[in-house]
Design a protein around this nucleic acid. Structure first.
Lengths: 330, 330
DNA sequence: TTCGGATTTGACAGCGTTGTCATTTTTGGG
DNA sequence: CCCAAAAATGACAACGCTGTCAAATCCGAA
């Protein structure tokens, strides 16, 4: 029983007699043997490692995404290296590429806004390391991408506000570096346009997904001479900030102001009233991204699911108590 | 200029002539060379990798901790592998040990409740892989531990409620597997005892750090014949749930009920009114844990800071609007 | 200028796997 | 029962570094 035979068994290669295979497996269990990942990646062409690059994800997004990715990795006996970076800073593309190279990872996950950054995406397109883009904005250079139809979700949510009778609907944008930001704004605008409403630039404020930026945006919107009767914030943290601001001004949500968010973050259940929001299948998307990388590595049979390249994932609109309907003055 | 000399320069070893060193560095920059981590860990005795094992951390905790750890890793040119596990499940200790071994990591971070699980901690004590325990409950087997004085913080917070005139103070416990859970309860009890109050078991409810468990606990406490005038929840998610429940019952916080939490999670700023809470230096503790591992690996000079072994980290009590004072009926 | 010791550099053998290819064993047909 | 082809197994180099130790170079003092 040579060392090579053991290797064959552990890698599930063909041409090993069942009896031998069993004997090896027994010994492995007996000795509690685990193959050394470093040696494997040095000698073979796989490292059993993926890297996940992110900048700043909202708390809930990071933990949900990471969970989905880790579950998928575990199933495939892979490990996940996480790395934080600043997409704005110079040399980030080089550093990420260098990291992926020296780590010999079999693939990388580029979370937003990393996968939205052309310089970085282009860099990985030039490397021969598979990269999966999560919710990217622009050019994918033929790389696998996993995304949700943010525009439709935002449009649907806006439509819901319109259906509830709202005509002046404020919008709080997300972080400009994220692809989702423009797609969500797009959906909002589409809904207004289809309803025959002219969009009022005063009603569109900028934000960066942070609670604080939501406070600023809400202040601006609620101080308007003609304030909106509903506000759609690009994520729940900012929506919660809007609710908080409204409360401070003595406004009652949803009586005086309807508010909706995006993400179904934990915070959306804690606000009073709870927020209507959009739930993304974050864990599923993370797992899908890992599976794409696995396919690229050739370690996973192309499933039907996978053959639907770059498909969009289903969102879900959660109706909670933060929206009121009624006739509003125009 | 042999390959060995390059190795010496990259590892900052002594006995390389400055001129040689410069030449090598120039070439490295020129060729964009990065040493292969797998080869390094196979040949040498360091892998430049740490592993972080966690079960389920609250969203905010995970992202803050991970950030602190990653920042510290980056400074030392280390990488971080994350792995999720279920401490309750059988064989977890073996699997974690196997993972750490096959990965050749230079150390592991055991987050709560992983580092609270005797079986797992004991397993790592037997391995020769340095392990740092984060906020552990029990025996540390001589391993480096990084913790905060949860008991003092909870006691101080409870004292604050007492000082505000509250005499019936409800308590919502955290997840029983976490060491912090009993320490926080301890602090609460201590404060009551020192105030000469007999503790009422009816006022102590169980929870598991989740929002939902907070709802259940709040329902129980607020349904009491003699309900508390203040509730101390072991974390902010549960405290937010308490506020939400109170609101649903038509109670005004803090007029009818004072609520305090623990963690300074994002959610604590979103509640109406915002929560008084305890802020832990999570990032600092994570960085400290990494530094301990670095010391254990011998790659970091023992700093003064470090010589204070297993010291506690400073918390901060944040006073926000969720507590009212006044005379309450006893 | 020369010598001895200290400093700097390099040659070479692994580290624990996998890939390649040769060798051995098994299998089935005549 | 023998032989060829197929299947199973093993020998060995290589992956890109680091550790060890020997060789080369440098330095200052006599």
């Amino acid at each position: 029983m040579s060392i090579k035979t053991v290797s064959r068994v552990l890698n599930n290669e063909a041409n090993v007699r069942p009896a031998t295979r069993d004997k090896v497996k027994a010994a492995v269990r007996e000795l509690n043997y685990v193959p050394d990942v470093s040696a494997r990646s040095l000698a073979g062409q796989r490292s059993y490692m993926f890297a996940m690059f992110y900048d700043t994800a909202s708390e809930g997004y990071l933990s949900r995404f990471q969970k989905g990715a880790l579950d998928a990795c575990r199933d495939a006996n892979y490990h996940l290296i996480v790395e934080q970076c600043r997409v704005g800073a110079g040399g980030t593309a080089d550093r990420l590429a260098a990291t992926a190279t020296q780590l010999r990872v079999d693939g990388v996950l580029l979370l937003p806004p990393v996968g939205d950054t052309e310089e970085i995406v282009e860099r990985f397109a030039g490397l021969d390391i598979p990269a999966a883009l999560i919710a990217p904005a622009g050019e994918t250079f033929g790389m696998p991408a996993v995304r949700m139809d943010d525009a439709s979700a935002a449009q649907e949510m806006t439509q819901f506000l319109l259906d509830s009778g709202h005509r002046r609907i404020g919008f709080v944008k997300g972080h400009p570096a994220h692809g989702a930001t423009s797609r969500r704004l797009q959906g909002y605008s589409n809904a207004l346009r289809e309803a025959g409403l002219s969009s009022d630039d005063m009603l569109i404020t900028s934000g960066d997904f942070s609670f604080e930026s939501g406070v600023d945006a809400a202040d601006k919107l609620l101080s308007l001479a003609e304030p909106p009767t509903a506000i759609f914030a690009s994520n729940d943290d900012m929506a919660a900030a809007v609710i908080r601001c409204a409360a401070e001004r003595g406004m009652q949500v949803p009586v005086d102001l309807s508010v909706v968010g995006f993400d179904d973050a934990l915070i959306s259940k804690a606000t009073v009233p709870p927020l209507s929001t959009v739930r993304q299948p974050v864990e599923t998307m993370a797992a899908a991204a890992i599976n794409r990388l696995l396919e690229a590595t050739g370690s996973r049979a192309m499933s039907d699911d996978a053959s639907v390249a770059n498909r969009s994932y289903e969102y879900q609109i959660l109706h909670r108590a933060s929206v009121a309907s009624g006739p509003f003055k125009v």
